[in-house]
């Protein structure tokens, strides 16, 4: 090996020693490299602006939104969080700009948790549906979800 090559290699070794490891622990990496500001997660609805037209439910590609309503002031929309793929169609096609996409990065790791209590979320409840009725419906869908998961587990075993 020529002297010049050895010198080059030696320089690289010293440089890498001084620099320290390139690989970082995940927590360290998250500190140095935060998620972008425009990260996409689940939709949020501003209740005052919502007119319960149902466009978001119709355009949702994964059918993760459901709706129940009497008229434009009384109704509720709930969301199955792990089924949402954060595409933002509901935000794009909302005629009243009532929907925005949440930018909380911790929500972006919501895969199927198999804990249905966390999976379902009432994102909008208006008028007479607010309060008791919405809570009752949420408990109902959570029960249904738990039944489905039980069936899947039985089929698998």
């Amino acid at each position: 090996m020529s002297k010049k090559k050895l010198l080059v290699m030696g320089r690289e070794v010293i440089k890498n020693q001084a620099k320290g490891p390139v690989t970082l622990h995940i927590s360290e990496r998250l500190e140095k490299h935060p998620p972008p500001e425009d990260i996409r997660t689940i939709p949020r609805i501003i209740e005052e602006k919502c007119i319960m037209c149902g466009t978001c439910v119709k355009v949702c590609p994964t059918h993760c939104l459901w709706m129940e309503k009497d008229d434009k002031d009384n109704g509720m929309i709930w969301l199955l969080r792990p089924q949402c793929m954060w595409c933002g169609h509901c935000q794009t096609y909302c005629p009243k700009d009532a929907i925005h996409i949440d930018r909380e990065p911790s929500l972006s790791v919501s895969l199927f948790s198999f804990n249905v209590r966390q999976d379902y979320e009432m994102i909008c409840a208006k008028g007479s549906f607010k309060g008791e009725k919405a809570e009752k419906k949420l408990a109902e869908v959570i029960e249904e979800g738990a039944k489905t998961i039980k069936e899947i587990e039985e089929f698998r075993s």
Binding site: K58, V59, C60, P61, M85, C87, H89, Y93
Partner: peptide, 10 residues
């Protein structure tokens, strides 16, 4: 089985 708009994301 999906609309043209939904297929944009599929």
């Amino acid at each position: 089985a999906r609309t043209w708009r939904q297929n944009t994301m599929l």
